[in-house]
Design a protein around this nucleic acid. Structure first.
Length: 959
RNA sequence: GGGUGCUUAGCUCAGCGGUAGAGCGUCGCCCUUACAAGGCGGUGGUCGUAGGUUCGAUCCCUACAGCACCCACCA
C-alpha cells in the first residue's frame, strides 16, 4: 500500500468496476428495499444539497444491500418544464431569436437535443459521489413509458370528474407568459406606497376615499366595498360612484370581508386582478373587467389614453391624472407583500384565463361512489395521520397535514412548449374531447365533434409527472416490459411492483408540498398503496456562516471542487461568473481570497461523504465547513495507515487463524468494543442518525482500535509468546475487516481499496466456523459490495477483559500525565514503582508488564513496600494502587506538589457534590435505590483516591 | 395573523431527568520504525433569561427575549 491515502488514485478505479459488475441492480433475492431518487433537473448540475441527500440515500442503499435485501435505487431525471425551456430560450437569445422564430416543433426538437447533450452531466456527477444506483433502469419524466403514465392519469382523473377546465383567476407570470401554481409564487416584502384616492358619488353630493397599493388597477374597478356595519359609510351603500378617469359608474357594496380598522375602511374592488376582489365580485355578481394583456400592458378595456402602457407606467400615468384632478388624497410609504414568480422573479399578475385544474376538494371516490372524504386528498391525509407513512423527524407530518387540510385546486396547465402536452382536443365549436390520443378522445365523446379537432396547446405542470414517479418508474400502467430507446428493459410492472411502496423517501422540506404530498395523492389513487413507508426530511446545506448557498451570493460550493480540489484563481472566476453587479462581484472575490487563500484542497469523495454523515443530525440546516471535511480526510488517512500497519505485520501471503479464543485481554476487549459499536451502528441506521453512526465508528477506529489496540498489539507482536502474537495478528485483521464493512456505506472507495488488500492475506479455510462470517474476504473476493454487513452477533463480549484494559488505560494515562506535566522528555526511559494495591492489581501488573514498559517508556515496574522507606516520587492513583515515578533528578518537587494539590482540590469538589446529595434525606428517601447506591460507590472511590493522594502529598512535605 | 424550529466550550454542533461531550481552534512537549493529515498532555462551559414541577433540571412545564424558516386574502 502507498504510504498515505490518496483519494484521487483509488476513486478513479472502483466506480466503473462496480457499475459494470451489475452489483447495483436488485439481486432478485431477499426482501425488497427501494429508494426513489428525487429526480434532479435533467439540465442541472450537482450542488451540495444533492450531494448530501444522495450520500444519505447511498448509505442506506449500500447498507441494506449488504444486509441481503433485494435493493433498488431507482434513479432518473426530470424534464423540468420551465427551467429547461428557459435555458434553451436563453441560448436562442444569444442568436437574437425567440422560440417563436423557430416554431413549436423546431423548438421542442432543439430542447431534446440540448437534453441529449447535457442530460448526463448530473448523473455522471452522481457517480463521482459514489452513488450505487441502478443506472440500467434510469428514467426520464418525458420518456415514452412515463409519458404514457401521465396520459392515463390525466384521462382517468378527467373521466372521474377530478380534472376540469375552467376560466379562473390564476397566478400569471407575465414574463414567462404562463400560469403558475400557488406554490410557485413567493410573497416578498417590498417597500411601496399606499395611495388614498377620492371617489365621488354620481350625484356629486358625497365622496369616499379608498386606499390602495395598486392605483393602476382602478381602471378595472367594478365596485367599492365597505363593511356592512360601518356607520361612517352606511348611507353610501347602494349609491353609485363615479370611477375617476374612466367615465364608468360603480356601486358601493357592503361586504364583511372589509376591515373597518384598516386604511379608510373602503376597498376598491378589481375582480380581474386580485384574488380577494374576485371572490367579492362573485358574491355580488359583478362581472370582472380585465385591464391587462398577458404581458401586463393595459388593454382595450381601459380608456384609450392608457392602452399599451406597461402596468408600472400606467401606474404613473394614473397617479398623475388623479393628482391633476385633485382626487389623490394621500401618498405614504408602505411595506407590502408582493407576489413574485419563483421562476422568473417577475411580479405575478392575477389573470382570468382558461386553465386545467385537478379538483382536490371533490368527494367522488375512485369507484364512482360519492364519499364522505375528499377523493384525492382524503387517502393522502389518512396515510400520514394513521402512521402508515411516517415522517422523520416526525414534526414534518404536521406541515404536511396542515397544508393538505387547506388545499386549493391545483392549476396544472402551463403555457409552455416543453413538457407533456395536455391530451385534450377541441372541435370548432369549442367542445372538449379528452383521451389518450385523438382516436381515444373521439371514441369517448358524447357527441360527434363539429369539424376538425385541434389539440390543446398547453403542457402540464412538471410536478404532475413527478407525482407519478413511485409507480410510473416501475412500469405502470404497461402490461409487459417497458423498454428504453435502446431497446433495453427498464421496468416491468408485473414484477417490479414488489418495490412499491418504497422503504424511505429522502428529500428536502421545500418540496413536501410540490412533490411528497402529490406522490401520496397520485399513488394512493391509482395503486391503492402508499408510495413509501417513511419520509426522511434532510437538512438544508448552508455555508460555514449559516448563510443559504446561492449563486447570487457567490457562496456556493461545488461538491466536485471539494472532491478534486480547485486552485484559487479558477475558484474566484467560477464563483463570480454569474455575478453582474460589480460591487457584489468585488465583495465575493474578496471573501473568497480571504477564506480560501490557497484554493480548496482536494479532500476526496469519502471524506466529503463522511462529513455529510457526521453533520446529518435531525437539525434543519447544516453549516458546511471545509475544516470539518479536512478533519474527516485525516480520518480516512488514519484508517489507511492502520490498515498498512496491520498488513505489514502479517507474514507473507496468509494468516493462519489460531485455535480457540483470542489469547490476550486486549483482543477480547477490542472485540467487545467492536460488538458494542456494531450494535449502536445498527440502531443509528434504523433511526437515520447518521451523525451518531459516523461518530460511533470514528471513535471506535481512532480512539480504541488505533490509539489502544494497535499500540497494545506492538508488544504482543514482538514478544516471546508466539501464540499471543499469532492470535493478535489474527484479531488485528478480523477487526479491521469488520470495520471496513461497517464503514463501507459511508466511505465506499477507501474501504473497497483496503478490503482488496486484506483479501490477499485472509485465508478463509483456516478459520473456525464460528470466527468465519461468510463474508470474510479471501483471494477469491471480488468486491466488498458482495460482503455482508457486520453484525454485533458475530462477536463476543468479555467484561473481565474490558475491565482489565480500562485499568491498564488508567495506569498508563497516570504515567503519561506525570511525564507530560513534569516535562520528562518522551524518549527518556524512567523507573516505575508500585505501592499498595490489592491482589487484583498484582495480577494485572504481572500480566501487563511488557505493555506498560513499552507504552509508557519505563523500566519493568517494581513493587515496593509502602512506608517510610519510599523514595520521593510523583504519583498517580488508580483505585487503591499508587503508581510512582521516583523524583531523583527528574522531577521538580514543587511542581509535583502543585500537581497533587490541584488533583486533591478537584477530588474534594467531587466529594462535596456527593456529600451534598447523600446528606439530603429526601434524596436518599426518594431517589431510586440504584442511584443512591451509585452515589455511595462514587464517594467511596473518591475517598480512596483522595486518601492516597493526601498520603503522597504528606510524604513530599516530609520526605 | 397562524405554525415550526433553534439558543450548550472561541467556532460548528451532539446530549435531553441523575459525575457537561465531540470535531475544529488554542497552549505545552515530541519527526517514538502505521499515520506530523501524526503522538502525548493540557486549557476552555453558572447549558438564552425568569419562574415552576422534582429528592435532583442543560434536559420536563410556563412566560419572556433573540435568531431562523414555513403558511396566510389585510386593500
Amino acid at each position: 500500500m502507498e504510504k498515505s491515502f490518496e483519494p484521487a488514485r483509488i476513486e478513479s478505479k472502483w466506480y466503473e468496476q462496480w457499475e459494470a459488475s451489475g452489483a447495483f441492480r436488485p439481486s432478485g433475492q431477499g426482501e425488497p428495499y427501494c429508494i426513489l431518487l428525487p429526480p434532479p433537473n435533467v439540465t442541472g448540475t450537482l450542488h451540495m444539497g444533492h450531494a448530501f441527500q444522495q450520500t444519505v440515500m447511498d448509505m442506506l442503499v449500500r447498507h441494506q444491500r449488504m444486509r441481503g435485501m433485494n435493493t433498488l435505487w431507482q434513479v432518473g431525471t426530470d424534464h423540468a418544464g420551465i427551467a429547461t425551456q428557459k435555458i434553451v430560450e436563453n441560448q436562442l437569445a444569444t442568436e437574437d431569436k425567440t422560440r417563436h422564430d423557430l416554431g413549436r416543433d423546431a423548438f421542442v426538437e432543439r430542447v431534446w437535443k440540448w437534453k441529449e447533450e447535457s442530460g448526463s452531466t448530473i448523473t455522471n456527477q452522481m457517480r463521482r459521489i459514489g452513488a450505487a444506483a441502478d443506472w440500467s433502469r434510469e428514467r426520464f419524466t418525458m420518456d415514452e413509458g412515463l409519458s404514457a403514465a401521465v396520459r392515463k392519469v390525466f384521462v382517468d382523473w378527467y373521466r372521474a370528474g377530478l380534472i376540469y377546465r375552467g376560466n379562473r383567476l390564476v397566478n400569471w407570470d407575465p414574463v414567462l407568459g404562463t400560469a403558475v401554481s400557488d406554490l410557485e409564487v413567493n410573497n416578498v416584502e417590498r417597500d411601496g406606497h399606499m395611495w388614498s384616492i377620492r371617489y365621488l358619488t354620481t350625484d356629486g353630493a358625497a365622496s369616499l376615499v379608498v386606499a390602495t397599493t395598486r392605483p393602476e388597477t382602478m381602471l378595472g374597478d367594478v365596485a367599492v366595498a365597505v363593511h356592512p356595519e360601518d356607520e361612517r359609510y352606511a348611507h353610501l351603500i347602494g349609491q353609485t360612484l363615479h370611477l375617476p378617469l374612466t367615465g364608468r359608474q360603480i356601486p358601493v357594496i357592503a361586504d364583511d370581508y372589509v376591515d373597518r380598522e384598516f386604511g379608510t375602511g373602503c376597498v376598491k374592488i378589481t375582480p380581474a386582478h386580485d384574488f380577494n376582489d374576485y371572490a367579492i365580485g362573485q358574491r355580488h355578481k359583478l362581472a370582472p373587467i380585465t385591464i391587462f394583456t398577458l404581458d401586463a400592458k393595459v388593454n382595450d378595456n381601459a380608456p384609450e389614453k392608457y392602452r399599451g402602457l406597461d402596468r408600472y407606467d400606467a401606474r404613473k400615468a394614473v397617479l398623475g391624472d388623479l393628482e391633476a384632478s385633485g382626487l389623490l388624497v394621500e401618498t405614504r410609504a408602505h411595506k407590502l407583500q408582493v407576489p413574485v414568480s419563483q421562476r422568473s422573479d417577475a411580479v405575478i399578475e392575477p389573470m382570468l384565463t382558461d386553465q386545467w385544474f385537478v379538483d382536490l376538494t371533490c368527494e367522488v371516490q375512485a369507484d364512482g361512489r360519492p364519499g364522505g372524504r375528499k377523493a384525492i386528498t382524503g387517502p393522502a391525509l389518512e396515510a400520514v395521520r394513521s402512521g402508515e407513512i411516517r415522517f422523520v423527524p416526525e414534526n414534518w407530518a404536521n406541515t404536511y397535514t396542515q397544508w393538505l387540510d387547506n388545499i386549493q385546486d391545483w392549476c396544472i396547465s402551463r403555457q409552455l412548449w416543453w413538457g407533456h402536452r395536455i391530451p385534450a382536443w377541441y372541435d370548432e365549436a369549442g367542445n372538449i374531447f379528452v383521451g389518450e390520443d385523438e382516436a381515444d378522445a373521439r371514441a369517448h365523446a358524447a357527441a360527434a365533434p363539429v369539424g376538425a379537432l385541434r389539440q390543446d396547446e398547453d403542457v402540464l405542470d412538471t410536478w404532475f409527472s413527478s407525482a407519478l414517479w413511485p409507480f410510473s418508474t416501475l412500469g405502470w400502467p404497461a402490461d409487459g416490459p417497458v423498454k428504453n430507446e435502446r431497446g433495453e428493459v427498464v421496468a416491468n410492472w408485473d414484477e417490479d411492483q414488489i418495490f412499491l411502496p418504497s422503504a424511505v423517501l429522502v428529500t428536502g422540506f421545500d418540496i413536501i408540498f410540490f412533490w411528497v404530498a402529490r406522490m401520496v395523492m397520485a399513488t394512493k389513487y391509482f395503486t391503492g398503496r402508499i408510495p413509501f413507508r417513511e419520509v426522511y426530511i434532510n437538512a438544508i446545506v448552508r455555508d460555514a456562516e449559516g448563510q443559504k448557498m446561492s449563486k447570487s451570493k457567490g457562496n456556493t460550493l461545488d461538491p466536485l471542487d471539494l472532491i478534486d480540489g480547485i486552485a484559487l484563481e479558477p475558484l474566484v472566476a467560477k464563483s463570480t461568473k454569474s455575478l453582474l453587479i460589480p460591487q457584489v462581484r468585488a465583495k465575493v472575490e474578496k471573501r473568497i481570497r480571504r477564506d480560501y487563500p490557497d484554493g480548496i484542497p482536494a479532500i476526496g469523495t469519502d471524506a466529503l461523504r463522511f462529513t455529510f454523515a457526521a453533520l446529518a443530525s435531525y437539525s434543519r440546516t447544516i453549516n458546511f465547513d471545509i475544516k470539518r471535511a479536512e478533519g474527516y480526510k485525516a480520518f480516512c488517512n488514519k484508517l489507511w495507515n492502520a490498515a498498512r500497519f496491520v498488513l505489514m505485520n502479517l507474514p507473507e501471503g496468509q494468516v493462519p487463524a489460531p485455535a480457540g479464543a483470542p489469547a490476550t485481554e486486549a483482543e477480547r476487549w477490542i472485540l467487545t468494543r467492536l460488538k458494542q459499536t456494531l450494535a449502536e451502528v445498527e440502531q443509528h441506521f434504523a433511526s437515520y442518525r447518521f451523525d451518531h453512526l459516523a461518530q460511533a465508528l470514528y471513535e471506535f477506529v481512532w480512539n480504541e482500535y488505533c490509539d489502544w489496540f494497535l499500540e497494545l498489539s506492538k508488544p504482543a507482536l514482538n514478544g516471546d509468546d508466539t501464540a499471543a502474537a499469532a492470535s493478535t495478528r489474527h484479531t488485528l485483521l478480523v477487526v479491521l475487516e469488520a470495520v471496513l464493512r461497517a464503514l463501507h456505506p459511508v466511505i465506499p472507495f477507501i474501504t473497497e481499496e483496503i478490503y482488496q488488500e486484506v483479501a490477499k492475506v485472509f485465508v478463509r479455510s483456516s478459520m473456525s466456523a464460528k470466527d468465519t462470517p461468510s463474508s470474510l474476504p479471501d483471494s477469491s473476493t471480488k468486491s466488498i459490495l458482495q460482503s455482508t454487513y457486520p453484525q454485533a452477533a458475530d462477536f463476543a463480549t468479555d467484561d473481565e477483559a474490558a475491565a482489565e484494559i480500562e485499568w491498564f488505560k488508567a495506569v498508563l494515562s497516570g504515567v503519561r500525565r506525570i511525564r507530560s506535566e513534569m516535562n520528562i522528555p518522551p524518549g527518556k526511559t524512567i523507573a516505575l514503582l508500585l505501592a499498595d494495591g490489592d491482589a487484583n492489581d498484582r495480577t494485572r501488573v504481572a500480566k501487563f508488564t511488557p505493555q506498560v514498559a513499552f507504552l509508557a517508556r519505563t523500566e519493568a515496574p517494581r513493587w515496593i513496600e509502602s512506608g517510610a522507606g519510599e523514595p520521593a516520587a510523583a504519583a498517580a492513583v488508580v483505585g487503591g494502587l499508587r503508581v510512582l515515578i521516583p523524583l531523583a533528578g527528574l522531577i521538580d518537587l514543587d511542581a509535583e506538589k502543585a500537581r497533587l494539590a490541584k488533583e486533591i482540590g478537584r477530588i474534594e469538589g467531587e466529594i462535596k457534590k456527593c456529600e451534598g446529595k447523600l446528606g439530603n434525606a429526601n434524596f436518599v428517601a426518594n431517589a431510586p435505590a440504584e442511584v443512591v447506591a451509585q452515589e455511595r460507590q462514587r464517594i467511596a472511590d473518591w475517598n480512596g483516591t483522595l486518601g492516597a493522594l493526601r498520603e503522597q502529598a504528606a510524604r513530599l512535605q516530609n520526605p
